[in-house]
Every structure is written in structure tokens, then in C-alpha cells.
Design a protein around this nucleic acid. Structure first.
Lengths: 196, 196, 196, 196
DNA sequence: AATGAATGAGCCTTCATTCAT
DNA sequence: TATGAATGAAGGCTCATTCAT
């Protein structure tokens, strides 16, 4: 995170990524400066350009890495041949777990979309749509086979994703709820609603 | 020399507010410049300071206005003496309606919290907590009288608020769903869940 | 000095002069703003222009008033027909007394010369030379009649004036020396020197 | 893009100091702009900040350097074991010489004291008092051993310092008096006074 | 004669970026 | 690869001044 003063070699790039993640998460892409980032890494601002093309690329790399990982992992987490309801439960468990352990990446990917420039923006939006598509498909299949009651799969998917992703904004790893408990809590809410 | 062009008199403040709302909504507080804002208003950058103390105040005013209005209106929208379930339905309908008609304010209040400086930040966070408290109280009462099934009222409130607020991020007034339809859709989701 | 809020009529000009004197004395001409001055007077910045042509004129008026008063009074204080030594003593007593009672004007006239623009600067420098001339003439006459030992009247005059004017920079009206005592002290120094 | 013109490397700081000295001497600290300074150095305004923290620091450095040099040199110039009268003569000769050769520094140190901000101001005032103390001590010793006739050593010291420092404000290196001649002239004035 | 709101110029400072060393 | 010093563009803000009301 801070002051690996005089950090050398291939470790520098990793240090830059880590520092950028923390800094952007805490202050926002527009608000941070490359001086602050260089300070956190323990190098001079100019030296950043030995590892990175420009400020925008730092953000894009972070978000892009996150999105591709997310997509790769969701595929493994949701059994392709299971029933829609089982898939939905798997999706919820995966999403909550992933978002809780990688709060910073998730937060940045959502809040800094606006700071991505033209070509980068489309790329990320595309990946995002792909991920949303996973949930939408599950809901559609559930509606088709009658196991899920969902009139508008797209809207319902957005609603579910918003609800689950919102966890990142208040969750503290030191809190009294584990990831599993949170997953269960939200699964019940989504599946059965709140009316007694 | 003076006043050869642009807006005039007491209307200027209103024009600044309006332009700031649009600009910050589209590009973010950190990303906009007072030159852009002045341009949008039709005055010189320095003239802004006849109406505003500094850039930060513009943001704070916007968010603070929004939060106090939100609080005043929610009180009127949710009948104090109704049953918890009825109150919850009223809250959902109000929240969806308000957030859809004032998408910009809502978005800014959520996404630019980070850009509020020390004393301002606390003020807004306080008002936010007050609003969340309205929903939490409803859920608590529902749990107490057995009409709502909710183990963790606070977490459930956050979940519901995240879900509902998320509407702003994709809703288009030109879309095919009316505010009422959206309210109904989300009410059903929250009350009865998704399982058939 | 401060806040004669809503001051009216011909008194305003006087209030401006007084406030300007204090402000410029304390912070310097370049460092003060017309907003500060207007604040001190209790009016709006724009209203200053009902009484004054611009910032420069405020300074010039102050310094010019001071210089003409100084010249008028020195003529009365130094008896034209007295012996050079008596004239010198009268000059010293006058200069010390005047400079002590009008410390601010004197200080400004010396330290803000640089801030006077082209035509104003020459005018004041001219008046200053006139005042210096009074002392130089006394010294010349003293040298001519042998009563004063002064090889370089001009340099000696500058030396004496510097010494005496320096009093303003440390003198406090609340201090333990009266104006008369200071005049005596400096007269002795100038006339007889410091060697026992 | 980078470094297409202007000065370079470690010499830049020296160039900034030199240019600042001249500019502040001629126009005053408040009146100069960093653009003018950068122009004089031959770099862009922003580049100044590679060498200097801010405008105020430029002034402080200049004045502080001057004061510490002054103190270091006066100690060498005045023989610690000499008689008070000899010390006084040495002090006068040193002061005149130093002030004539470094007119700009001296002038700035005196006239821009007011522009020094809180902590800097105290530091310089402290150094100044130290220098005044050197002369005050000499006068006190002279009074103690009866070699000097001085009722108020502090006031006399101020008077002498004012007289001598005043030389800077009219002295021209091209004038007809050498530094030594000026020192002698003022020494006689101070020691023996002006009465024949 | 006072005000409020405007202008336009400019100020100090910061920033992403470049590049010779 | 890292550094230090430079660039040029801008950014928030202040200021003297103007003028319709």
C-alpha cells in the first residue's frame, strides 16, 4: 500500500495496482493525482510512466481485470445444468461472496464507469451487460418453466443486482454477519419476500 | 464594461442551481469546472461568486436541498397510523415516484457523498440516516406485530433501499413502464419474492 | 475605523480616508483590497466609487495631504530669521513631534512611494525634496557661518532625516518616553554625538 | 514537449533567487507575480514549484539568508575584546559596507517584513533583534566604562541603525562617494555630532 | 449616494505528461 | 528503470472596476 520506497522490478507494477485500487476506492478517480499514487508506491510521478501509459489506463486495467475475473468465476459458480431456482441460489451466493471479498474493485467498477473514456467505456459496459445477462437468463428460464414468478426478467434482474451490490456500501468485514449469513438473508428476501 | 451579456438579477442563482444539477449529474463534481458552469449559466466564472461561496457549497446546497425535501415529503406520504404493511407499501410507492422524477438529485446525493468535505459530509450522512430510519422503523413494527417476516430490519432496509434506488440508474422517462407500474413491480418483488 | 454601517453624506469620504489610513498602514497598499476598505467603512465596494476615482487616488490623496501639511507646518515651526543652530533645533523638535503624532501618514508616505504611479510619484517626490531642502539649507547656512561642522550637507541631512524618521517604526504612544524627551535625546545625539 | 527552452538543472534555483531579489526590490513582494518571476528566469510559472514551495517561501528564503549572513559577518567584523569605542567604529564601518554592497537584500528585509506570514515573521524579527542587540551591547559597555555618553542605549542604537540603514535608500554605486568615505562621514556624525 | 450583480483580467497553484540523464 | 526538472494547460478564486436600479 504505502512506501515500498525504492521498489524495484516487476513488483512495482503490482504495487501501483494495489495503491491505485485503494486510492481510487477512497477518493475517486478524478480526485486522486498521480503524485499521490507515486507517493503511495514510493516512486516519483514520472516513473509511473515506465509501467503505465497514462492515468486512464490505470483505471481501465483495474476495472477490466475485475470484470473478466467476475465473468470467469460466475460461470464456474453457477451449474449450467441445474434447475433455474438452484441456479438463482448459486448466483446469489456467488455474487454476495465475490462482492464482499472484493469490495474495492466492485465499488470502483460501478462508481467510476463515468470516468472511463470513449473506447474503454464501451468495453466495460459490454462486459457488464454480459454479467447481467447471466442473471436475466436464469430468470427467463425460471419464468418459462413456471418455477419463478417474474413478469419482467430484465427489471427484476436489475432489482436483484442493485440489492445485492448495495451490500458493499455498508458491509464491514469486522461486522457480526458472515458472508454466508448475508447470502442466506438476501436469498430469503429475494425468493420469498417480506410478507409473513 | 459591466453586464454586456448573460443572465441577470435574482434569477441567476436559480440558473446556477439548475445548470449545476445537470452538469454534476452528467460528469461528476470533480470533473466539472466552474468555467463550464459559468458558461452554462451565461456569465463569467468570477460572477458565480456573487451567488455562491465556493464550488463545494454548490454541491452541498444541491444535496442538502434534496435531502430535506425528501424527508419532508416522506413524512407526508407514509400515514403514521396505518399498519406496517400499508406503511411499507406507501413507502415503496413514494420512494419510487420521488426517485424517478428527481433522478439527478438522487444520483448526485448518492454518488457525490465522497466529494463532500468534512462538516458537510456529516450533515448529509445524518439526514440520510434519518431517511433510512423511516424504513427501518416500519420493518421493526412489522416484525413486532408479526405482519412482516424480517430477521434483520436494518439489513433488510438497506437491501430494499438499494433495490429501489437502483431504478434511477437505468430508468428512462421515455421507457415503456410508468412510475406506477414500476412501483407495483417492485412492491410485489419485495413483499412476495420471486418464487412461484 | 469600523462599521459605521450605512454611513451617509459627506461623512463617508472622511470615513474612507480614516479607514484607508489604518488599513494601508497595517497591511500595505498592494495587500489591501477595496472590499476590505468598504467593509471597514460599512458600505459596498461599488459605493466607494461615489467618492473616489480609483484605488490609486486613495493612496495619492493620503500621501499628498500629508506632504502639504508637513511642508506648511515646518515653515511655521522653524523661525526664518534665527541662527542656523537654533533653526536646526527647531527643525528637530518639529520633525519628531510631527512624526510621532502622525505615525501612520509618515510611514505610508515613506513605504508606499513605490506604489504611486507615474505622475503621482513625481509629485510626491518633488514635495519630499522640498522638505529635505529645508534641512539641507539650514545645514548649508550653518557651515557657511561656521556654527555647524558639516562637510556634506546633503548627506548629513539624509542621515539626520533617516535617524529621526526611524522613530516612527518603534515608537509606541504608551511607552515611557514623551515626545519632548525623544526630541531632546535625538537633538543631543545629532548635535554633540556619542563620544563622552 | 518538455524543456524546449529556458534554464536548466541545479542552476535554476540560483536563477530564481537572483531574479526574485531584483524583482521584489524594484516592485515589492505583493506587486510582483510568479509569472513575472518565471519570465525573468526563462521558465514556465508552474516550473517554479519544482524548486520552491510557494511565493511566500521565496521571500522568506531571501530575507532569512540575508539575516543569517549579516549576523555571521558582524561577529567577525567587530573584535570582541576591543574597547567599546573601537567596537562601535568597527560596527559602523561594517554596517555601512555591508548595506551598500547588498542594498537589495537590506531593503527587502526592512520593507517586506510586513509581507511575512505568521511563523516566518517571528523568525526574522528574532534575528533582527539579535543584530540590534550587538549594537545595544556595545553602547551599554561604553556607558558602563564611561567612554560613551548615551543615556538610552536602546534608543540610541535604533537611531544609529536608522541613520546608517537609510544610506541604502539614496546610495548609487556610481556616485562620487566611496563606501569608506561614507563610513567615515557617518562615523564622525555619530561620534562627534554636528556642532562645530 | 448606495446597492447588487456583472465583467475581464489575472493570480497562485496543481496537474498529467515528457524526456535527458 | 528511476529521477528531476521541465512543459502547457487548466482550475478555483480574487480583484478593481462598472453601471442599472
Amino acid at each position: 500500500m504505502a512506501r515500498t520506497a525504492g521498489s524495484h522490478g516487476p513488483k512495482t507494477m503490482e504495487a501501483i495496482r494495489k495503491a491505485a485500487l485503494t486510492l481510487i476506492y477512497r477518493k475517486g478517480y478524478e480526485a486522486i493525482t498521480l503524485r499521490q499514487l507515486a507517493d503511495a508506491v514510493g516512486i516519483q510521478p514520472g516513473s509511473l510512466y515506465n509501467h503505465v501509459r497514462n492515468k486512464q489506463d490505470i483505471l481501465f486495467d483495474l476495472v477490466h481485470d475485475h470484470m473478466t475475473t467476475l465473468l470467469a468465476e460466475v460461470e464456474q459458480a453457477v451449474p449450467a445444468d441445474a434447475a433455474p431456482l438452484a441456479q438463482l441460489e448459486a448466483f446469489i451466493a456467488f455474487h454476495v461472496g465475490y462482492h464482499i471479498t472484493r469490495r474495492e474493485q466492485v465499488f470502483i467498477a460501478n462508481s467510476e464507469l463515468r470516468s472511463l473514456e470513449a473506447p474503454n467505456h464501451s468495453v466495460i459496459v459490454g462486459l457488464r451487460k454480459q454479467y447481467e445477462g447471466v442473471l436475466i437468463d436464469i430468470l427467463r428460464q425460471g419464468r418459462a418453466d413456471g418455477s419463478l414468478r417474474v413478469d419482467e426478467p430484465t427489471i427484476a434482474a436489475y432489482a436483484i443486482l442493485s440489492m445485492l451490490t448495495g451490500i458493499c456500501s455498508w458491509y464491514q468485514p469486522t461486522g457480526r454477519k458472515s458472508a454466508e449469513q448475508l447470502a442466506t438473508l438476501h436469498r430469503d428476501l429475494i425468493l420469498r419476500g417480506i410478507v409473513a
